[in-house]
Simulated scan of single mutants.
Amino acid sequence: MTNEMFRVETKKVAKQAGGLGEFMMMECQSGKLLITGQFVLSLSEDQFFSVRCKLEVPRLDTWYMQTKDGLVMSERSPGLEEWEARYNEWINEADSRKMLTYTRIEISGCYLYTDGFSYTAIKKERLEMLQSTECIARAGKMLVVDGVHVLAPIKEDVWKNNDWLHRLPGMEIEREAYEEK
């Protein structure tokens, strides 16, 4: 199913994908996907073509790396079925009861979101790739934006050493203390 509703900024997408190391573009029943280690984007027909041209991807279903010398094919196995299954798992796992709300706080190049129990930092550049970020929900350790795009949150808890952020009611203090060890 091709995503025609939730668009992306193709120039920013190409810049992010090219700067992240490996990426792959694939067409499958779930749509036209751009896959990296940090995000999976579902693209419309024209945006898929535009990103492919900007990245100069010669073949689909192949991992590539952007180097100083240009695009280089990776030796990594495509794993198309696994990536499609993983993408669908994240999309289906997104819980509308775990919607994140933007706190209007920016820390270390990240936007800070909350679900009322904890904070989640998302790289500013990742969200700026997307034309819409109305609904952001948790899906395990990943985040699903508008039901079609998958982003990885920042693993480092950039907010922990800020005295001006207060602990939200219900935050799991014991778990956080354990994770800091």
Rank of each mutant, 00 (worst) to 15 (best):
residue 129 M to V: 08
residue 181 K to R: 12
residue 54 K to D: 12
residue 48 F to N: 07
residue 86 R to T: 07
residue 28 C to E: 09
residue 108 S to M: 09
residue 55 L to T: 03
residue 42 S to K: 07
residue 56 E to Y: 00
residue 91 I to G: 02
residue 170 G to P: 00
residue 128 E to G: 04
residue 80 L to E: 02
residue 126 R to L: 14
residue 167 R to Q: 11
residue 170 G to T: 07
residue 146 D to V: 05
residue 158 V to K: 01
residue 71 L to Y: 10
residue 34 L to M: 11
residue 177 A to D: 02
residue 173 I to N: 05
residue 133 T to P: 02
residue 53 C to I: 04
residue 85 A to V: 14
residue 77 S to D: 15
residue 9 E to S: 07
residue 74 S to E: 11
residue 172 E to F: 09
residue 70 G to M: 13
residue 57 V to Y: 06
residue 119 Y to I: 08
residue 19 G to P: 00
residue 181 K to L: 09
residue 41 L to H: 00
residue 89 E to R: 04
residue 146 D to R: 03
residue 177 A to H: 01
residue 130 L to Q: 01
residue 54 K to C: 09
residue 82 E to R: 04
residue 1 M to E: 07
residue 81 E to H: 13
residue 143 L to E: 02
residue 114 T to Q: 06
residue 145 V to Y: 00
residue 78 P to G: 13
residue 128 E to W: 05
residue 5 M to K: 14
residue 45 E to Y: 10
residue 180 E to V: 02
residue 112 L to A: 06
residue 47 Q to M: 09
residue 172 E to H: 11
residue 97 R to Y: 14
residue 9 E to F: 12
residue 172 E to N: 14
residue 38 Q to T: 08
residue 115 D to S: 03
residue 147 G to L: 06
residue 19 G to Y: 07
residue 75 E to Q: 12
residue 181 K to Y: 14
residue 22 E to Y: 06
residue 34 L to S: 01
residue 90 W to V: 08
residue 73 M to P: 11
residue 134 E to F: 10
residue 164 W to P: 07
residue 53 C to G: 08
residue 20 L to Y: 03
residue 67 T to I: 14
residue 16 Q to S: 08
residue 144 V to S: 05
residue 74 S to A: 14
residue 60 L to Q: 02
residue 70 G to A: 11
residue 120 T to A: 09
residue 28 C to A: 15
residue 152 A to L: 12
residue 109 G to Y: 04
residue 93 E to L: 15
residue 140 G to C: 13
residue 26 M to S: 06
residue 18 G to M: 03
residue 22 E to K: 07
residue 36 T to S: 11
residue 71 L to A: 07
residue 72 V to P: 08
residue 44 S to N: 07
residue 23 F to V: 05
residue 55 L to N: 04
residue 80 L to D: 02
residue 62 T to Q: 12
residue 41 L to A: 10
residue 133 T to H: 13
residue 78 P to Y: 04
residue 181 K to M: 06
residue 132 S to N: 03
residue 41 L to T: 00
residue 40 V to G: 01
residue 48 F to E: 04
residue 28 C to P: 01
residue 170 G to C: 01
residue 111 Y to G: 04
residue 48 F to R: 02
residue 70 G to H: 05
residue 37 G to V: 12
residue 3 N to A: 13
residue 87 Y to R: 03
residue 19 G to F: 00
residue 86 R to Q: 14
residue 90 W to L: 05
residue 149 H to L: 10
residue 28 C to Y: 04
residue 157 D to A: 04
residue 166 H to Q: 15
residue 4 E to R: 13
residue 179 E to M: 00
residue 98 K to D: 13
residue 159 W to N: 01
residue 136 I to V: 04
residue 72 V to I: 08
residue 35 I to V: 06
residue 101 T to H: 09
residue 79 G to P: 06
residue 114 T to S: 09
residue 93 E to N: 08
residue 105 I to H: 07
residue 60 L to C: 02
residue 35 I to D: 03
residue 171 M to P: 01
residue 173 I to M: 13
residue 26 M to A: 12
residue 30 S to D: 14
residue 181 K to E: 01
residue 50 S to G: 12
residue 143 L to G: 00
residue 6 F to N: 03
residue 137 A to K: 09
residue 174 E to R: 12
residue 174 E to Q: 03
residue 111 Y to R: 04
residue 9 E to T: 15
residue 125 E to S: 10
residue 47 Q to Y: 08
residue 119 Y to S: 09
residue 2 T to P: 05
residue 27 E to D: 13
